[in-house]
Design a protein around this nucleic acid. Structure first.
Length: 425
RNA sequence: GUGGGCGUAGCUCAGCUGGUAGAGCACUCGGUUGUGGUCCGAGAUGUCGCGGGUUCGAGCCCCGUCGUUCACCCCA
């Protein structure tokens, strides 16, 4: 009887060796600037009460209306796999009263998110994001810092072919005035049914249409930036001047549209040029009403989410991944039973000294073991047999050029330590 | 959700107008005693994604299905 193979669910992206090394590296680069800015880790559940997203992210969004993984748990509760990160953070902040302490609350997070979309290049049903949130203060300087942290993450990877686009969605009065005019405007256009329906829910979406005729039709549409109140406009100018002071290049894109309903004020997006249709590698913005909608105090916040999968694709496209992939420092080849015992002991000691050590397992012939050592990329190799155990010393072979030095077994850690540190400098 | 491309050994692929499968790389072993990379030799591996149909006969044709990929849509 042969069992059928089981496949991974549609559209999930897995990272296996050796690619996983690159994935991990990219994720670390994206997080590093947040850590350096004093943001602290928040580990949250991947599933939440469905209401969190329908209320927080917005019923009218595509994310909520047709892309959520929603199911009933055994207690009859409606549960949803998180499609984004901000709502969960806000829920936890409110629930655990983090907003009762000093503000802003500054947190970062990293994990997988789920959207039931048709998979495509750079678009998966389970994808990885890192993000930060700064909650509780409405200060344009925070907006600028948050943007800068995202920017630095991409720079740290070594990416060049991306642009930062910013805009302001203003405050509530700004948006209301603009929306009214935009509604009037689009009614003068001859829209097909689906497009008109979308416009009815959120007319801003019309700016995101890629069809050339729509882009042309929208050329004279009223822009939200022209409707900003004095406060909002002043705020946006400050954000810009802070960004300039930090030498962060940006372009103002008054037609930028974000897919989540909670955004207000400063909004931004990072777009990479080498990725095909799914070119957004990160984005975020301020959200004035979110916390209150979720039952908390009326505090404002700002944050971003960066796509780790897409950042990795961008890094590959630009060829900026570091080439020195994982290689171990030492490969021990034990010959025989007692040698294996010693090998395990020695390896433990070396690892305690932070020397990456592998062992040739499986009782294979010496030649085969040497090949395995070679393929592992190990810098040094040691053969451990009866003779070596008797003598208490081994021949340390440098794989690069085959040079051999005799080293006492108890000196191995010290000797390797100095050889390796010399090599790294 | 809509549309196009693709699905043959672990990987990249070939397979002519239908006659029951091949290459390169990788892998394992060997080229006499305990030392890798090159070279030489030998070897293992496929329900040709899955299910139906047409046919004397299908990897090649048809239908369905699953997966994948690209685009729309949407977004990270």
């Amino acid at each position: 009887m042969k069992y059928e193979k089981i496949q991974a669910p549609k559209g999930v992206r897995e990272y296996l060796p050796p690619e996983s090394t690159a994935f991990e590296w990219v994720r670390e680069q994206l997080i590093a600037p947040a850590r350096l800015a004093g943001y602290q880790l928040m580990e949250l559940p991947v599933f939440e009460d469905t209401n969190l997203f329908s209320r927080g992210v917005g019923e009218s969004t595509d994310v909520v209306s047709k892309e959520m993984y929603t199911f009933e748990d055994r207690g009859g509760r409606s549960i949803t796999l998180r499609p984004e990160g901000t709502a969960g953070v806000m829920r936890a902040v409110i629930e655990q009263n983090l907003d009762r302490g000093q503000l802003p609350v500054k947190v970062w997070y990293s994990g997988q998110y789920f959207r039931a979309e048709r998979p495509q290049a750079g678009r998966y049903r389970q994808f990885y994001q890192v993000g930060i949130e700064a909650i509780g203060l409405d200060d344009p300087a925070i907006d600028a810092e948050v943007i800068a942290i995202a920017y630095q993450g991409f720079k740290k990877i070594g990416l060049k072919n991306f642009t930062l686009q910013i805009t302001s969605l203003g405050d509530a009065p700004s948006r209301a005035a603009h929306r009214a005019d935009l509604m009037k405007f689009y009614k003068t256009l001859n829209l097909d049914e689906a497009t008109a329906a979308r416009a009815e829910v959120n007319p801003l979406r019309l700016f995101d249409d890629k069809r050339p005729e729509m882009i042309a039709a929208m050329a004279n549409a009223p822009l939200l930036l022209d409707y900003l109140s004095l406060d909002a406009s002043d705020n946006f100018k400050k954000v810009q001047s802070y960004l300039s002071a930090m030498n962060i290049e940006y372009t103002i894109n008054p037609r930028m549209v974000r897919g989540l309903d909670y955004y207000t004020g400063t909004t931004f997006e990072f777009v990479h040029s080498d990725l095909g249709a799914q070119s957004g590698i990160g984005g975020g913005g301020r959200y004035d009403g979110l916390m209150e909608i979720l039952g908390g105090q009326p505090l404002s916040g700002i944050g971003f989410g960066l796509g780790v999968d897409r950042a990795l694709l961008a890094a590959i496209a630009e060829g900026v991944l570091p080439s020195d992939s994982f290689t171990s420092d030492l490969f021990i080849i034990p010959l025989g039973e007692s040698a294996m015992t010693s090998a395990l002991t020695i390896a433990s000691e070396l690892r305690n000294a932070a020397i990456t050590t592998e062992i040739a397992f499986g009782d294979r012939a010496l030649k085969g073991a040497m090949k395995a050592a070679d393929k592992s990329g190990a810098r040094y190799v040691v053969v451990l047999g009866e003779a070596e155990l008797q003598a208490g010393s081994v021949e340390l072979k440098r794989m690069e050029d085959g040079a051999v030095t005799s080293v006492k077994i108890e000196q191995l850690s010290r000797e390797l330590g100095s050889l390796l540190s010399a090599q790294r400098n």
